[in-house]
């Protein structure tokens, strides 16, 4: 536990010193919510765009910072030989993965709070009243996406990792019902997308924050599986150099 705390402190310190990365992490979801919340261009059907968007953009923000930002930063750490040097200390792969996920949790607290506040300002009306479940979904989503990001960053060269993270992000964004309703997808794709963590997270957040009618069991199980398996695989397969 002590080494996780030491590494977490270093991760947060580095995050704070990389202002541009942090800014991007915060600004993009806020811009997305502000723009699409004000302009009716999304096929959200009978639902008010802002009602559809708030849970979706929170899911996008979690995916962006937990998977893409963390994954790319970790890939660069490999090319800077930072990981190799850490590999020569008593810090284990598992401890590194846990500290990185915890550092993203810390960012998520501020990010999600900012998005909820902006959503309320833009007219979003929370209706689910299932805050504990929503928080669990945020934690599960962060763990799942951070795990996926670290699986890629832990094995691939920095340049390939960069392309893979962005490619996967686009795929999960389009298929996951985060900003485009899943009903708009071909039925086969919509069904297959249920096993994606992005779909599970977006569905859970809509049910818990908006009170949308939807089962919690399937997305809950899917997200739980990703949240456990992805970090476990990352810790097992992570390469220091």
């Amino acid at each position: 536990m002590k080494r996780i705390a030491i590494q977490l402190r270093a991760e947060l310190m580095l995050l704070a010193r990389n202002g541009e990365q942090l800014l991007l992490t915060f600004v993009i979801p806020i811009l997305l919510l502000s723009f699409f919340g004000s302009v009716e261009v999304l096929p959200s059907g009978d639902v008010e765009p802002i009602q559809f968007l708030v849970p979706g953009v929170i899911a996008v923000a979690i995916m962006s910072s937990a998977m893409v930002s963390l994954g790319i930063a970790t890939g660069f750490e490999r090319s800077y030989l930072v990981l190799k040097r850490l590999g020569a200390t008593p810090l284990t792969r598992g401890q590194l993965v846990v500290s990185k996920i915890l550092s993203v949790f810390c960012v998520q607290i501020v990010q999600v709070a900012a998005l909820l506040a902006l959503g309320l300002f833009l007219g979003w009306e929370p209706a689910g009243n299932q805050w504990p479940l929503a928080i669990a979904a945020v934690l599960g989503g962060t763990s799942a996406f951070a795990g996926i990001g670290l699986v890629l960053a832990g094995r691939l060269r920095a340049e390939i990792n960069l392309a893979a993270q962005n490619g996967l992000y686009l795929l999960l964004l389009l298929l996951g019902g985060m900003v485009i309703p899943r009903d708009s997808l071909p039925s086969a794709a919509s069904t297959a997308a249920q096993v994606l963590p992005s779909t599970a997270l977006a569905d859970l957040l809509r049910t818990t924050l908006n009170g949308d009618s939807g089962a919690l069991l399937v997305p809950g199980t899917v997200l739980c599986a990703w949240a456990i398996l992805a970090p476990a695989i990352a810790a097992k397969r992570f390469r220091w150099s």
Partner: peptide, 15 residues
């Protein structure tokens, strides 16, 4: 053991 790499090994923005 202590390891000194041939180059790099520190994040550029680290003090």
């Amino acid at each position: 053991m202590g390891v000194m790499l041939q180059g790099g090994g520190v994040y550029p923005s680290a003090r």
